[in-house]
């Protein structure tokens, strides 16, 4: 079909773009490598700033794109450039000729075990932001369930702003996520002392600063300015955290019952492969390269290939959704110009 559009990735960006393209009268083909839509958001519990249930967001979007052609557990096998578009072969054997491809390939959560000094996967009481959301959703995690949790720490910037870890970018959403999760833990463990270890608090978004003040005023979260340098385990299985309290200018250590690592956002490694099939290179920040980073962040130098969401860098859900809407319009304009 002459107006075929292939969307790679069924996260928020891919779903919202599909929704808009359906409203514009197209019937996009959406491929998702996992067995469900919603991307990382599907694994989350509640979303800042209004504590919207993540499942609700995914459910609403899913319902609105049921008219699209959706292939789950499907990947792009190869893409051939043709005179007027692209020939895309999927891993399920389906072959599509299309004029436009949207790479909404999203991000990988930084593998926290790479920060060896934090002991994720080694010390019993260390978990990630994602593990904690999983516990919020299921109540099932042996690091928390049935444990006497009296002191909890949140480590900001795990695999973000970290040249040695291979990602010097800020992941943007971790500061607010840490504060959100710190307050959620304080609700569940009212007697616990909760600490956030941060370098800067980057609270740029709508109502984020309100969250911060609320965390200070109502939840009594302790904010310690300093990056955690190393973690160890004591005889009781608690974790000992070392940091500098940079406001006091002195090294500090503290014993905690639970340590939550705010794993950052890095480019989806598999997306790099797909992008290379359509000659979309990697930018110096490690994410997919846009035509430019001011007005054409959703466009590429490859004709008919578009980008949306965290494929080009860390973004919040509203930012991702806004880009997805913009890209739907950009694709529409492109297809009209090709007629």
């Amino acid at each position: 079909m002459k107006d075929n559009i292939v969307i790679v990735g069924g996260g928020i960006a891919g779903m919202e773009a599909a929704r808009q393209l359906l409203l514009l009268g197209y019937k996009p083909i959406l491929v998702e490598k996992s067995d469900h839509l919603g991307g990382h958001v599907a694994d989350w519990h509640c979303l800042f700033p209004d504590m919207t249930p993540a499942q609700q967001v995914v459910k609403d979007l899913t319902e609105q794109i049921k008219d699209a052609n959706i292939f789950l557990e499907t990947e792009v096998s190869f893409i051939n450039k043709m005179k007027m578009g692209y020939n895309v072969m999927f891993s399920n054997g389906v072959n599509v000729i299309c004029k436009a491809i949207l790479l909404a390939t999203g991000f990988d959560l930084f593998d926290a075990s790479k920060k060896e000094e934090y002991g994720y996967g080694i010390y019993d009481q260390v978990m990630t932001n994602k593990d904690l959301e999983h516990w919020f959703n299921t109540g099932d995690d042996k690091r928390i369930t049935g444990k006497d949790i009296k002191k909890i720490g949140f480590v900001h910037c795990v695999g973000s702003r970290d040249v040695k870890a291979g990602n010097q970018q800020c992941s943007k959403v971790c500061c607010i996520t840490a504060i959100k999760q710190a307050m959620e833990m304080k609700e569940r463990f009212p007697d616990a002392e909760v600490y956030c270890f941060y370098m800067d608090l980057r609270l740029f978004g709508k109502k984020y600063e309100d969250f911060y003040i609320k965390a200070q005023m109502e939840s009594g979260v302790h904010f310690i300015r300093g990056r955690v340098s190393e973690v160890s385990e004591n005889l009781q299985g608690q974790v000992i955290v070392k940091t500098e309290d940079t406001l006091s200018g002195k090294p500090a250590k503290i014993t905690l019952d639970l340590l939550v690592l705010m794993a950052g956002i890095v480019c989806n490694r598999e997306a790099v492969q797909t992008a290379s099939m359509v000659q979309v290179p990697i930018d110096s920040d490690g994410f997919l390269k846009s035509r430019d980073n001011i007005l054409n962040i959703i466009e590429t130098d490859s004709k008919g290939v578009f980008l949306a969401g965290t494929a080009t860098g860390a973004k919040t859900i509203p930012e991702t959704a806004a880009e997805a809407r913009a890209v739907a319009l950009a694709i529409h304009n492109y297809l009209v110009s090709q007629q």
Partner: peptide, 10 residues
């Protein structure tokens, strides 16, 4: 302490 975690790093 999760011994398998250390083995992975080793």
């Amino acid at each position: 302490m999760i011994y398998q975690g250390k083995q992975k790093i080793w």
